[in-house]
Amino acid sequence: MNAHPTAPDAPVLEISGLTIQFGGLRAVSGFAERLEGNELVGLIGPNGAGKTTVFNLVSGFYQPSGGTIRINGVDTKGLKPHKVTALGVARTFQNIRLWNEMTVLDNIRVARHGRLGYGFLHAVARSRTYRAREAEIEREAMELLAVFQLDRHAHDLPKNLSYGTQRKLEIARALAGKPKLLLLDEPAAGLNSADIQELIRLVRWIHASFDVTIWMIEHHMDVMMELCQRIKVIDFGETIADGTPDEIRNHPAVISAYLGDDQI
């Protein structure tokens, strides 16, 4: 059974002419991207370039002023975030957003909310459907925690875990809904260099073992150069470069965007 509604052969994500305006400010303008199955692609740009805005648009937090976003061939126009998630998108946040007063296991369980398969009446009547579904959700959540080696923390509260472990948990939670597209918003932010090496291994392992397309924003260039097959660079909402890590490294527009092109 396929969990998400898909059009056959459609790319996982197809964005064209994406524009959003906040008052007089064009935060993103004419952005286009096309991600195929199981790609690992990067999005970089200086501070305030509009990277997170693109992610907020894709995950349904903002409605674009223009352009279209298609996820697995379905236009997301007017969909609320939880409906977009149901199309197979999951994401993490720059600042970790876990549910800190809920156990690690419950964090994973609630992430299955979109595909519970029962509603209020089943929950309070403890129906057969409810019991079967809850047992399955719990089993799958424990399996997921086990592959992330988080199972020994299953009954701990996230706020008591180390920062690196919280990051890992947030990524695991994003994968709980079996997404086709995973958006990682600065996963290395706030990590020390040892944790960053572990993060690189983690992302590579997720890419290899989950059938998921990964699109990530990151300021640590070494992380991006090492992981991404392709990188797009934006500045002031406009795309300025697109290519392999090696091409991006030496691209004049990228260098000037990051370092400035004023004559000294």
Partner: peptide
């Protein structure tokens, strides 16, 4: 605990 995360993690908050 975190409404934004709830919305993104497929909870129909309304």
């Amino acid at each position: 605990q975190n409404e934004v995360a709830a919305e993104i993690m497929s909870v129909n908050t309304d």
